[in-house]
Simulated scan of single mutants.
Amino acid sequence: MKHTDYRSQTVGQIVASDFGASAVFARLGIDFCCHGGVMFGEACRQKGLDPADVERELCAHNDRQGAGACPFAEWPTDLLVDYVLKIHHRNIRERGPQTAQLLGRVVEVHGGRHPELAEVARLFSQSLADLDSHLSKEEQVLFPYIYELHRAHTSGTAIAPFGCGTVEHPIAVMEMEHSGEGERFERIAALTADFAAPADACASYALAMQQLRQFRDALHEHIHLENNIIFPRAVALEQAVAMG
């Protein structure tokens, strides 16, 4: 099997080339999305992990999974944006309110014995409000320009100057907002003991924790695809189109 030189890459680059690595990083608490620019060895040391041990886990995971992981890094940029819009944006807008509603019912029933649930519900509600604004900015400003860049580069044509000056400006805002969401879900995970249902939980409580975890995991993939693949490509495309 081909050896992967993990130590010369950032954790975001590792997951971009092999999304299967995300499962290993997530289990070990290594942030590959909001802090995907951290070098592999440093990310391991920040978590008190031996990089050699993590390398072995990555290799073992790859051996078990084979080539089944979705090859996002091989997809063209416009297809990646399509995927984010139709899978992740749609998921947030459809599943998010459903989870918030379920969480509200769980707070009503179990909030007395588990007062932390009220804070979880407040944080999640604020996340949905902030994400709605975030998604709108991507849909109305950033993604249309990335589509234009992709078409211009593919066809060898020119495009009008971007209204924001350069694509790096809205990308910086999106990455800052991604970091805020990452921190918010770290707080939710801490409040819920990593989305665990306590011994006295009913089926609705357990389901709410499961849905919160699934929402967080999908958000991590969403942020990873943008921060580590789409955004760097957009910067490179803009530079290539400007050079003609």
Rank of each mutant, 00 (worst) to 15 (best):
S127Y: 08
Q140F: 07
R151F: 00
T157Y: 03
A172E: 12
H178A: 09
Y145V: 06
P170T: 05
L149A: 11
F143H: 01
L135D: 02
I171V: 10
L149N: 04
Q126I: 11
S133D: 10
S133I: 10
D132Y: 07
P170H: 04
F143W: 10
F143Y: 07
I146P: 00
E148F: 07
Y145W: 08
A152D: 00
A158W: 05
V173P: 00
M174Y: 09
A158R: 15
L149S: 03
L149K: 03
I146D: 00
R151G: 10
P161N: 11
M176V: 13
D132K: 15
S136D: 07
D132L: 11
T166G: 06
E177A: 14
Y147D: 08
A172C: 08
L149F: 04
R151K: 15
Q126C: 07
S136N: 11
L149E: 00
T157D: 08
Q126H: 09
H153D: 09
D132F: 09
E175A: 10
S133H: 15
I159A: 06
A129T: 11
M176F: 14
A160S: 11
S133F: 10
M176C: 12
A152F: 01
T157F: 02
H153F: 07
E168F: 04
V173I: 13
L135R: 09
E139Q: 15
E177I: 10
S179D: 09
E148K: 15
A158G: 09
A152T: 04
Y145A: 12
H134R: 07
H153R: 14
H153C: 05
V173T: 12
K137A: 08
D132N: 13
A172T: 10
I159H: 11
E168V: 14
T166E: 07
G163K: 13
E175S: 15
H178D: 02
L128D: 06
H169V: 09
E138H: 06
P144V: 08
H150G: 01
M176R: 14
I146H: 00
S179H: 10
L128R: 04
D130R: 15
Q126D: 13
E175V: 11
I171T: 02
H153G: 04
G156C: 05
G156Y: 02
Y147G: 05
I171R: 03
S136Q: 11
C164G: 08
H178F: 05
L131E: 02
T154A: 12
G156I: 04
L142D: 02
V141S: 08
P170D: 01
L128C: 14
E175H: 10
L131V: 13
Q140Y: 06
P161H: 13
E177L: 10
H134E: 02
L149T: 07
V173D: 04
H150C: 06
